[in-house]
């Protein structure tokens, strides 16, 4: 399954930036050793990150004989810091793509690598000191909160009762939540009944939703804020046999949910918002190709989060990815 090498569909913006470079003949024949430091697969999303990183290694090493990609996964921030040292000392990398486990804790270790002349691309979780990075590639967390809010406000006709689930208390979750509530401020007739943490976990989401159902007699929509959590939410609603909930909005575009959306299997799943771990693939590819040509990346590159509906869902469906 992993052996199937898929045709890469780069986002349009990336294409315009790099297509010309990619076609130019290789001049700098210097070997690029690219280290990739990412979190271990402990959640559907990080599972996707690991999958796409390995996919990028496979595709890029095949296409570029001058490139070596080393992928390291870490279970916590300290392990990741150690891996960065190992990548420097043992593997002698000259480019690094890092998905920091934690922003603050990894800033110093990444800066150390950067100071030794390694080209550093930081992915998703920004460092607290941005001078330690050459490029920053990230998903769009603001849009991740804003798009569902706008969609739900419209679908609910500007009024009704809504409950929300939150992930794990992090800056990333806060950004999404602030963007969501920011939009909802313009819709005073939509009442956000409560928002509890369910840790991006199916089981916790099941419990939280069960308790929401006990507590609130009329719920029109749920912002589950993650496709794993949406799974638990849907099961809890099914069990209660309640029919007042019209929409469950997940997020991130997990393949199971995209499939449900495409097939129209569940009337409560009408839209999603993309936050695909595939940006890991894009980041590695962009960095590797730029370094092979001796080019630089734009300092900041935000991969847009898009509204996924039934019409465009097939564009976001990757059946081979674990996420």
């Amino acid at each position: 399954m992993k052996s199937i090498i898929r045709k890469l569909t780069l986002t349009a913006a990336a294409l315009t930036t790099f297509a010309a470079v990619g076609m130019a003949p290789a001049t700098a024949a210097e070997k690029v050793v690219l280290g990739v430091a990412i979190p271990a697969a402990t959640h559907g999303f990080t599972g996707g990150i690991v999958f796409w990183a390995n996919q990028a290694k496979k595709d890029l090493e095949k296409a570029n004989p001058d490139l070596k990609v080393i992928v390291k996964t870490a279970a916590n921030a300290a392990e990741q810091a150690n891996q960065l040292q190992d990548l420097m000392a043992v593997s002698k990398i000259n480019a690094l793509v890092v998905f920091p486990f934690e922003s603050a804790a990894l800033t110093k270790p990444v800066a150390e690598v950067h100071n030794k002349g390694v080209y550093v691309t930081v992915v998703d979780r920004g460092l607290t000191d941005t001078s330690a990075q050459d490029a920053y590639v990230s998903g769009d967390n603001t849009a991740f909160g804003k798009i569902p809010a706008e969609y739900l406000a419209k679908a609910m006709g500007g009024k009704g009762n809504l409950v929300a689930l939150r992930g794990i208390a992090t800056t990333l979750d806060n950004e999404r939540w602030e963007a969501f509530t920011g939009v909802m401020k313009n819709h005073p007739d939509i009442k956000i009944l409560d928002a509890k943490y369910a840790n991006w976990n199916r089981d916790d989401a099941f419990k939280v939703m069960q308790d929401y159902l006990t507590r609130f007699k009329q719920i029109d929509a749920v912002w589950a804020a993650d496709d794993d959590m949406a799974v638990g939410v849907l099961k809890a609603i099914d069990q209660s046999k309640r029919t007042d909930i019209k929409i469950v909005f997940g997020g991130a575009g997990a393949k199971g949910m995209i499939k449900t959306l495409m097939d129209g299997k569940d009337p409560r799943i009408v839209a999603n918002v993309s936050y695909s771990p595939k940006f890991m693939y894009d980041s590695i590819k962009l960095t590797a190709e730029a370094r092979l040509k001796g080019e630089k990346l734009p300092a900041t590159y935000i991969i847009p989060s898009e509204l996924i509906t039934r019409e465009n869902a097939s564009k976001f469906y990757f059946p081979d990815s674990p996420f």
Partner: peptide
């Protein structure tokens, strides 16, 4: 219950 197991199951 959920018909699935994932790395967060039973955490």
């Amino acid at each position: 219950r959920l018909g699935s197991a994932s790395p967060t199951t039973g955490l």
